[in-house]
Design a protein around this nucleic acid. Sequence first.
DNA 1: GTTGACCTCCAAATCGTTTTGGATTATTGC
DNA 2: GCAATAATCCAAAACGATTTGGAGGTCAAC
Lengths: 360, 360
Amino acid sequence: MSLRAIAKRLDLSVTTVSRALGGFPEVAAATRVRVRTEAERIDYRPNQLARRLRYGRSEAIGLVLPADAGQFDDPFFLRLLAAVGPPLQRAGLDLLVMSARPGAEELRAYRHLIEGRRVDGMLLARTRRDDPRIRYLLDRSAAFVAHGRCEDPRTHAFVDIDGIAACRMATERLIGFGHRRIGLINAAPRYMFAHHREQGWRAALAAADLPRGPIRHAEPSEEAGFTLMRALLAEREPPTAVLCATDRLAVGALHAVSQAGLRVGCDVSLIGYDDLPMAGCTDPPLTTIEQPMARAGARMVEMLVALLGGADPATLTEIWPARLIPRGSDGPAPTRAGRKTKTPSHVLGGRHDTTHPGRA
Amino acid sequence: MSLRAIAKRLDLSVTTVSRALGGFPEVAAATRVRVRTEAERIDYRPNQLARRLRYGRSEAIGLVLPADAGQFDDPFFLRLLAAVGPPLQRAGLDLLVMSARPGAEELRAYRHLIEGRRVDGMLLARTRRDDPRIRYLLDRSAAFVAHGRCEDPRTHAFVDIDGIAACRMATERLIGFGHRRIGLINAAPRYMFAHHREQGWRAALAAADLPRGPIRHAEPSEEAGFTLMRALLAEREPPTAVLCATDRLAVGALHAVSQAGLRVGCDVSLIGYDDLPMAGCTDPPLTTIEQPMARAGARMVEMLVALLGGADPATLTEIWPARLIPRGSDGPAPTRAGRKTKTPSHVLGGRHDTTHPGRA
DNA sequence: GTTGACCTCCAAATCGTTTTGGATTATTGC
DNA sequence: GCAATAATCCAAAACGATTTGGAGGTCAAC
């Protein structure tokens, strides 16, 4: 199972065997055939452990999943894994996954991977405004690509989705429906994506000369969305529409609305963000914003390969647009006269095919 | 950054440096201090690539995510990753994740990992009745632990949740509610878990002398659940209760029921399986079956470590019970007289606190 | 004073691959 | 026939940590 085994059996040197299999020209055609045949016979595979030591590269990249509540079990990360898997395999890179709670444990995971030379580069997601992971990687000038930006003045490679524009668009849609009190249920503002989504929401309200509606923060879980929405509904003047920074928050909010005896899409409009598979299957189906995860993941891998090849991170920064998927959870603002009669969600859903829970 | 660097600077041999850092006794206390100090100064970390080659172990284990529709993006796998992460780190093992479509691509991924010596062992989940992955691993006598069994007569290490008992219990609960036509929306029966859940359902029906209700199969996605439930409702005599083999199927089914103008928990009862976070946030909240994923993941890692230490797989087989989480999606069968008035879901939910979408 | 028992330390081999710098044969040209 | 040129092949070094089998001292006991 090694070059030496083949060499010994064929009475050759390991050099020749290596070259024969590697396709180098300085080996006789007949010898090459003998070597190939023998290699096939014993089902020879080069030992990756040896190759990696020789080349000083691990041919793997790392990804640390945040293990805090409401983060880790987010389908977002599973979609990211699904997205980066195939392009990584094409690039001959393995994917090493760890999970760690933000803070010291998380940084220990990064050091474990980078300083133990277990990976050649890193992918990271859910960037924070002040991101110690990115600081660390920049300090060590490690190769990495982020999904999202951060506020460190030093540039790094990233693919980001334009959450400002997306949430501005979503908020403008709600304004167009006649809503005047538009709330925001957001993830913790230390996250860059939450910060951006809030900026988009603020920008749309400011542009329409509307007052800033109520705003709440929590980890982006269904449960938090439920709790916060219930709190918003209990206010003296509840918002008639709420933008949720993630679909999971929106699903919880939706539950709170219907449990309060109100109708989503009529009494209260909701818009989510992510377009998770379940978003088409809530009642009513969730109007949401779709992120091109598969393409973003593929591009992140491309960028990482470029970085490993010596590319300048400053040339690898891209911001992509998101797309609004109209479904049934938003609609015209309720009139002052009182609650309207229930309108079937498929009427409000616009272009959405209500006979089907999939994408519009 | 290497032992040699330290040795050269301290005018010692690499042997002594290695032993000093490794805590071996045959090194003078003073020398050990000198070595430790120098190691600290240059922030020395042993090169894992070299260690691994030396030991012939990669100190990593592999996990291949199935990339087929409705499987990969299943939160199940994210929970599995979350569950095995911490115990693996404690055991000093890295986790190598690939994704592949079942079939040739999947087996190629296994060969890539095992034959390239990239991992010392494998974890796998969602076993199939005839599972080529398990056949392959058994053939090569590789170390692996499965989440779920398969029908290969050779024993292997696994942790399984007793889906037969769980689904029998759930079906008995529906029978207790007076349901007589109880359907099943199942995952493809080639999956062991689907097979078991179906067996449980059949057993309960047989024990109660009830006819087998309608049964449908599909990949376990929301969309499939929606489509299949709509088909069931369109039958001449639709079932009054449906057991769904996964929560994602149940969420889709729930959507189909409410879109048909029927009330879940009153006109049609539904029970899911998995207790995903979203299960508490559907309307009504989903009665479902909870799997102890975190403990199962931890135990799987324990077993794998034992296998790498030479343990006999035959001694590492465990079947654990699941727990039914009563919520609001099931209830008394509708009377023949016609549809009952809507009963608030919290009455039906039993112990469930309906003011809160979390676990009961 | 010598023997033996330590206490320290080291050279060299090992893991398996790749690559550098020749060495040994054929083959060709004149 | 002789030299120049290919055509083949090989020994050894490299990657960096670990481990085997000693070597060279120091000390105490007899």
